[in-house]
Structures are given as C-alpha cells and as structure tokens.
Design a protein around this nucleic acid. Sequence first.
DNA 1: CAAGTGTTTGCAAACGCGTCGCAACTGGCA
DNA 2: TGCCAGTTGCGACGCGTTTGCAAACACTTG
Lengths: 143, 143
Amino acid sequence: MSPKKSRVEDMEAALRRAGVRMTRQRSAILTVLSTAEDHPDANELHGRARAVDEAVSLATVYRTLAVLEDAGVVHRHAFEGGGARFEAADVPHHDHIIDLETGEVMEFRSEKIEELQAAIAAEHGFELVHHRLELYCRKKRRS
Amino acid sequence: MSPKKSRVEDMEAALRRAGVRMTRQRSAILTVLSTAEDHPDANELHGRARAVDEAVSLATVYRTLAVLEDAGVVHRHAFEGGGARFEAADVPHHDHIIDLETGEVMEFRSEKIEELQAAIAAEHGFELVHHRLELYCRKKRRS
DNA sequence: CAAGTGTTTGCAAACGCGTCGCAACTGGCA
DNA sequence: TGCCAGTTGCGACGCGTTTGCAAACACTTG
C-alpha cells in the first residue's frame, strides 16, 4: 500500500524508469519545478534551484529542461515577448490567459474548445497532436 | 470609378494615410508580402525583397515589419521552434494548423471557438485583446 | 565496496534572431 | 529646387539559448 507520493518522487521514479540518471542538480531542478505555482523561465528556475543546491549552473538548467521535456515531465511554453517558460506536466491539461498589463499567467480549461479543436483538425484530414491556446487579455474596466 | 485596386496599392494607401513614408524598400517589402501565399520569416522576406529591389537590407526588413505591424497592415506570428513569421493583415481573421511533419501552415476559422474565447475571458474578469490558437497536427492515417 | 565507463557538469565561447547607433541618403513638402 | 526629419546600410550589440571541452560524477560490475 503505497501512500501518496510526493510530486518529486513520482517524477524521479518516472525518469529513472526512462533511464535518466539522477544527479544532485537534476533533483534540485525537479524540486523547484514540482513546488512552483507559476510558470518560471530558465533564469528564474536557475535562481530557485541554486537556493536548493548551490551547484547548479544555468547551462545545466537548460540541458535538464530539455531532458525533462522529452521525458514528458515538463511542458515548455513560449508566450509572447520573452523566453520559454516551464511547468511540471503532472497536472491536467489546460490553456492560458495572459494579463497583458502584469504579465501574470492564469490557467483555464474548456472542454468545448478541446472538442472543437479536434473536430477542426479532423475536418482537415489531420489528427491533433497538441495545440496552443493563449488568451491575451486586459482587466475589464467596470462600467 | 476606381476599379479593384491591388493589395499593394491598398496597403500603400493605408500607410500614406497613416503618415508613413513610402520608400523603395518599403514598396518592395509590401509587394512581397501582398503576393506571399505562405507565412515567411524575416530572412525569407529579405531574400524575396531583394529579388524585387536589390537595395533592401535585413535590418530594414525588420524595421519595416515593425512599422507595418503597428500600422496594422501585417500580422506577426511566432509558431513553435523558430523565429517570427509574417502575413498581410488584409484578410479576415483566422487561426492556424501546423503540419508537424512538413511545417506547412494552413488557416481555419471557427466562429464557435472565437465566441468561447471571449466568454472565457469575460468569466475571468478580462476583456480579450487578442489570442493565439495553433493546432499542431499530423496527417491522419487512413484506416 | 572499489574500479570502470559512459554521462553529466561548469565554464566560457559561440550561436541565432533581432535591435541599435551612426553617418549618409532621400521622400515629401514649400 | 532646396530643405530636413525620416529612413537606410552597416557593423556592433543584446539576450536567451546552445555547445565544446576537460573534470567530476552516477550507476554498474566484480
């Protein structure tokens, strides 16, 4: 009876299974990713990872993110104007709302839109592999 | 009685109205944009523009694209993995399907999705300024 | 539990895409 | 035709990301 495992443990397990070596720096980065509530970029992740373990270089952050991405444990986003941002992949799929004034990123999910997308792809003779839906918004002014 | 004007003429007219000077290089770039059937990047545009007029530098292509973009006559896209791509703005709004195998970009429009997006933004207390919807697809294998 | 081997790391240099400062040039107007 | 702010080409620069290399390391095997 395995009790609920932490996100980091799950991720590490998945990675080992995929034959990925666990190093101190990779653990540090995983820890940071699994506790992040936001969508940090590589630089931000670097800073946070160093707080966990001083021995993490920026190059390693980039290399690790690439490894984690194609192991499927993180998702990479490329919002407008700026570098890539990352997010642990062990959460249900969602799309993003970006506040143009603050840059804040929020999440949402619409079943209907998901269905429509698949339908549209099919109409064109394609199967949908993945998609990107970002709503760039401004706070509504109260009347 | 003005007969149907060409896209270039319309664009140049709109730009002059907006107080934008017309130079040889800008004309060349407009010509290229108005005849492009695809979504070229800055480099590609540079190549094509030089074919029209040798005297166009890459820096000018970038500067002109910026001018055209905020005059509203071109749209800038940033698909996955790669630089910005451009498209004349004198066509109705649409979203994109990207064939992951060939990189080909196709267009589609879904009224329903447009409505849903606005509704979602509103639900979160935002007004939608613009959005990005891209479907990354693979050709469907016939069964 | 130490040795062996292919991986991973840090560093700094290199990269790609886009921007910028500057001096020369030029479009649109008087 | 002449003026002059706006535009250009050039090369240098900026930023995020990638890479070559030698040293350090993780995991296996004996």
